Simulated scan of single mutants.
Amino acid sequence: MTTHSSSKLTFFFPDYTDPIEIAYLDTGISAGFPSPTEDFTEQRLSLDKLLIKNKQSTFFARVSGQSMIDAGLNDNDLLVIDRSIPPSDNRIAVCFLDGEFTVKRLKVEKDGVWLQPANPKYHPIKINEENHFVIWGIVTNVIKRL
């Protein structure tokens, strides 16, 4: 896996040369009362196949900061980002804004595009003609470490 860093995000590009399949319990794991073990069925699961729909356009980035905590994106979480998904209102996107990478929710309104944080301590950013702005991709999944 190769990497590239910016001050806000660290990017990782997937290595598909040796996909790994791990055991997967298809019955679900109870978060309430324990379930009987006789229903146990084991299959094989590839996280590449589950999390990545478009191999050539997918990359990963590690979150740095707290601006998206109310959307479930915390500092050090790993994002799965797909560049082939068209940006649209209410999607969470990785954007390049005035020389820095950021992850925010897109708000498309009549008066323009806003980058909306998911933390009340941060202010929305209105994109204007003076901004150097590029949407790099849409976040499809988040991988957390407990």
Rank of each mutant, 00 (worst) to 15 (best):
D18A: 14
D18P: 00
E21I: 04
I22C: 06
I22M: 10
Y24N: 14
Y24R: 13
L25K: 11
D26I: 11
T27Y: 05
T27Q: 15
G28H: 05
G28Q: 09
I29E: 13
I29N: 09
S30D: 08
S30L: 09
A31P: 00
A31E: 11
G32H: 10
F33V: 11
P36A: 13
P36Y: 07
P36L: 12
T37C: 05
T37R: 13
T37D: 13
E38M: 07
E38T: 06
D39I: 12
F40P: 00
T41C: 10
T41G: 00
E42I: 15
Q43M: 11
R44N: 11
R44H: 11
L45G: 01
K49T: 10
K49S: 14
L51N: 11
L51D: 11
N54S: 12
K55Y: 10
K55I: 01
T58M: 07
T58A: 10
T58Y: 03
F59Y: 14
F59R: 05
F59T: 02
F60G: 07
R62G: 00
V63Y: 00
G65W: 01
S67E: 01
M68N: 03
M68V: 04
I69C: 07
D70C: 06
G72R: 09
G72W: 12
G72V: 08
L73G: 02
N74W: 12
N74G: 12
N74F: 15
D75T: 02
D77W: 08
L78R: 04
L79V: 02
D82E: 05
D82C: 07
D82G: 05
R83L: 02
R83C: 03
R83A: 13
S84M: 02
I85K: 12
I85Y: 04
I85R: 09
I85T: 08
P86Q: 14
P86Y: 11
P87Q: 03
S88V: 02
D89F: 03
D89N: 15
R91E: 12
A93P: 02
A93N: 05
A93D: 03
V94A: 13
C95R: 01
E100Y: 04
E100C: 01
F101C: 14
T102P: 02
V103E: 03
K104R: 14
K104H: 11
K104V: 03
R105F: 01
L106V: 03
L106G: 11
K107F: 07
K107N: 01
V108F: 09
E109I: 01
K110C: 00
G112W: 04
G112T: 07
G112V: 06
G112A: 06
W114T: 12
W114H: 13
L115E: 07
Q116Y: 00
P117R: 11
P117T: 06
N119S: 04
K121R: 13
H123P: 00
P124A: 08
P124F: 12
P124V: 09
P124S: 08
P124G: 03
I125Q: 04
I125H: 03
K126A: 14
K126N: 02
K126I: 04
I127N: 05
E129M: 09
E129C: 03
E130C: 03
N131P: 02
N131I: 05
N131V: 04
H132Y: 10
